[in-house]
Write a protein that binds this DNA or RNA. Structure first.
Lengths: 236, 236
DNA sequence: CCAAAAGTGTTGCTTGTACACCCATGT
DNA sequence: ACATGGGTGTACAAGCAACACTTTTGG
C-alpha cells in the first residue's frame, strides 16, 4: 500500500524530462586598482582550453548554492565566500556539448586571501574587467549580467568588506568604487557620504606607502552586518 | 571517427546527474485597489488541492522563459505577458515529491485582459497580497522574494503599463503604488514626481465615476519603452 | 451650499555636486 | 620649498516631504 502511494507520487514527475544543471561563478576580486575576474581554461571538450567562468555540475544532494561553494572551494581554497544568485541561462542550444541549464552566481573574494597555488595549478588567471579575453558560450553575457548586479548592489550597500583587505584607506575604497562603476567620484563627496553611513571605524594606523602624508586606515565595524541599505552612489 | 568524438563529448556530461527543473510564476494583478496574486489548487499528489503558484516542468526543447510563458498561456490565455526571472529554489528537500529545482518568475498582468473562463476552469483564484492562504512547500518564500523584486523594480521604473488598463487616472496609479508598497504617498508629491518623468500623456477624457469633479485619464506614451530608469519612490 | 476628490502652490529641510582650500611630509 | 596626495569647508542646486490652498461638481 505504502509502495503504491510512492509509485503514484513519482508517476507525475516521471512524465517529465530531467536536465543537466550547472552553476557558473563570476568571481570578482580587486587588485592594483583594478576590478578583476577569475577565469579558467576549460578542461574538457567541447571548447577545451578556451576561457570560461568557474563552473560545475549540480550533484544529487546539493543545492545550487552548495554546488557553487563546492566549486569555489575547489578553485580558490576558500570557505565563507560572499555569494549571491545572479540569473539562470537556459536556452536549449547554449552549451555546445549538451542541454545544460546554468545558474550563475556572483562571488566576491579578497585576492590576498585566496590560495594562489591552487589557482595556479588549475591554470586560472585573474583578468581585469576592462580587458577580458574571448569566452565560451554565453559566458560574456553572464559576466555582463554579473557586473550589472554588482553595480546595483554597490550602489545601495557599501561593499568593500568582501573585496578589500581588513584595513584600507578611504582612497582605496574610492578606487574600488571607481573600478566597479568605471567612472570617477569626487574625493570629498565620496568621503562624506561613506563616513555619514557610520559603518566604518578609523584605526590609529596610517598607510604611508602610497603617499607622503599618509592616509588613515579604516575598517568595517563589527556588529554592522550590512543591515542598513542606503543609496551610496547614484546608479545609473 | 565522428561518432567517437561525439561519444567523448557526452562522456564528461554523462558522469553527472540530471534533475527535474520547474518554473513557478508569481502572477501579480491589480484590481479594486488591491494588489493580487493568482494562485491555483495543485492538481496532483503530494499536496493535491493545496494552494500553490502556477508552475510547470521544463521540457526538452524550451528555455525557462519559454516554459514560464507556456504555463502562463495555459492558465491565463495571454501572450506577451511581462515576465522577469526572480530566483532559483533548489534545496534538495524542498519538494515533497521529488528533487526538483525551481526557477521563479514575476509576471505582471492586467486583470481585465485575462481569460476569466480559463482561470475559473482551473479553479484558480485571485488573492489579495495582504490575505494569502497557506501555500505548499516554499511558495510563501517565493512570493516574498517576488514581492521584494516588484517593489525594487517599481521604485526605479514607473510600472503601471503592465498592471493598469490602457487609460488610468493618476490617483489610480498612486493607489497601485500604495498597494505595492503597503504605505501611503502624498498626492501632490506623487503627481509631481510621476509627471516630471515625462512618460505619461494626458488624454482628453475624464473619469467621472470615482469623483464628482472627475479626473483626467492618462496613458503611457508610445515610444517610451521604459528605457529611462530613475528613482520613483525611495525604497526602502 | 458643502462635502469630497482633483489638482496646484509654498516652504523648509536634506542631499548632491562642484570646487576651493588647507595639511603633512618625503624628496 | 614644493609637489603630491590626504583631508576639510563652503556655496549653490536639486530633490524631498509636509501641508495649505484652490477648483469642480453631484447631491
Amino acid at each position: 500500500m505504502e509502495e503504491n502511494v510512492v509509485l503514484m507520487l513519482t508517476e507525475i514527475y516521471k512524465k517529465h524530462p530531467k536536465h543537466y544543471v550547472a552553476v557558473d561563478c563570476s568571481i570578482f576580486g580587486y587588485e592594483e586598482g583594478e576590478l578583476k575576474l577569475l577565469l579558467y581554461p576549460r578542461g574538457f571538450e567541447p571548447a577545451r582550453g578556451k576561457w570560461s567562468l568557474m563552473g560545475g555540475f549540480v550533484q544529487e544532494g546539493e543545492s545550487l548554492e552548495e554546488a557553487a561553494r563546492r566549486v569555489l572551494l575547489q578553485t580558490t581554497g576558500m570557505h565563507n565566500i560572499f555569494l549571491e544568485q545572479a540569473a539562470a541561462f537556459s536556452k536549449p542550444g547554449r552549451d555546445a556539448g549538451a542541454r545544460v541549464i546554468s545558474m550563475t552566481f556572483v562571488a566576491l573574494i579578497r585576492i590576498d586571501m585566496h590560495d594562489k597555488e591552487l589557482v595556479r595549478e588549475s591554470g586560472a588567471q585573474w583578468w581585469p574587467i576592462t580587458k577580458l579575453p574571448k569566452l565560451i558560450f554565453d559566458h560574456e553575457e553572464m559576466i555582463g549580467n554579473a557586473l550589472s548586479l554588482l553595480q546595483q548592489k554597490a550602489s545601495i550597500n557599501l561593499i568593500g568588506k568582501e573585496l578589500l583587505p581588513e584595513l584600507f584607506t578611504l582612497i582605496q575604497l574610492k578606487n574600488l568604487y571607481e573600478a566597479i562603476f568605471q567612472r570617477t567620484f569626487d574625493t570629498g563627496n565620496f568621503r562624506k557620504k561613506v563616513l555619514s553611513l557610520d559603518i566604518l571605524e578609523r584605526s590609529s594606523k596610517k598607510n604611508t606607502s602610497e603617499s607622503k602624508k599618509g592616509a588613515f586606515y579604516y575598517k568595517f565595524k563589527e556588529a554592522e552586518t550590512g543591515l542598513r541599505s542606503e543609496r551610496i552612489v547614484k546608479f545609473p
